[in-house]
Simulated assay, not measured.
Amino acid sequence: MSSTTLRTLSGTNLEDVQEMNRSLVMRLVRKNQICSRAEIAEASGLKQSTITNIINEMINWGLIVETGMIEGKKGRRSIGIKLNSEYYKIIGIRLTRTSISVGMYDLDGTEYGLQKLTINPGEGSAIAFKKMKDLITEAISTNTVGKVYAIGMATPGPLFRNEGRIALMSNFPGWEKINIQEELTREYEIPVYLEHDAKAGGMAHWWFGDHQDHGVLIFVTAGQGVGAGIVVDGTVYRGSLGMAGEIGHMSIDYKGPKCECGHNGCLELYCSTSSLLRVLGNEYPSIQAVCQALEAGNSIVEEAVQKAAWFLGFGLVNVVNVYNPSQIVLGDEFAAVGDRLLHTVSEVIQQHVLPDVWNRLEIKLAPPEKDFMLVGAATIAIDNLLNQPSVHLWPKAE
Rank of each mutant, 00 (worst) to 15 (best):
Q224S: 15
G225Q: 05
V226T: 03
V226H: 00
A228Q: 08
G229R: 00
G229S: 10
I230T: 12
I230N: 11
V231F: 03
D233C: 00
V236H: 00
Y237W: 09
G239C: 07
G239L: 05
S240Y: 09
S240C: 10
L241C: 11
L241K: 14
G242A: 05
M243A: 14
A244V: 09
A244F: 11
A244H: 11
G245M: 01
E246V: 00
E246M: 00
E246K: 00
I247L: 11
G248H: 03
G248N: 04
G248K: 00
H249W: 06
H249S: 06
H249Y: 12
M250S: 14
Y254T: 14
K255Q: 15
K258N: 06
C259W: 06
E260W: 01
C261D: 10
C261I: 10
H263S: 15
G265E: 12
G265W: 12
L267C: 04
E268Y: 04
L269K: 03
L269N: 01
Y270R: 10
C271Y: 01
S272T: 03
S272V: 05
T273F: 05
T273Y: 04
S274E: 09
S274F: 09
S275L: 10
L276E: 01
L276M: 02
L277F: 12
L277D: 11
L277V: 09
L277Y: 12
R278T: 06
R278C: 03
R278A: 06
V279M: 04
V279F: 00
L280H: 01
L280F: 01
E283N: 07
E283K: 10
E283G: 13
Y284V: 01
Y284S: 03
Y284P: 03
Y284L: 06
P285N: 09
S286Y: 14
S286V: 12
S286M: 10
S286E: 15
S286L: 11
I287M: 03
I287H: 02
I287F: 03
Q288H: 09
Q288S: 10
A289C: 02
A289Y: 08
A289E: 08
V290N: 00
C291V: 07
C291S: 11
Q292V: 12
A293D: 02
A293Q: 01
A296C: 08
G297Q: 00
N298R: 08
I300S: 13
I300D: 12
V301P: 04
E302D: 15
E302S: 15
E303Y: 07
A304V: 11
V305S: 00
K307S: 14
A309Y: 12
A309F: 10
A309L: 11
W310C: 05
F311S: 10
G313A: 03
F314I: 08
F314M: 14
F314A: 13
G315W: 02
G315E: 01
L316F: 09
L316T: 06
L316A: 10
V317Y: 13
N318R: 11
N318L: 06
N318T: 10
V319S: 04
V320Y: 11
V322I: 15
V322A: 15
Y323Q: 08
Y323W: 15
N324I: 02
N324R: 05
Q327E: 14
Q327F: 05
I328Q: 03
V329S: 05
G331A: 13
D332W: 01
D332V: 02
D332I: 02
F334S: 07
F334G: 05
A335D: 03
A336F: 13
V337R: 02
V337F: 07
V337D: 07
G338F: 06
D339T: 13
D339S: 14
D339C: 08
D339R: 14
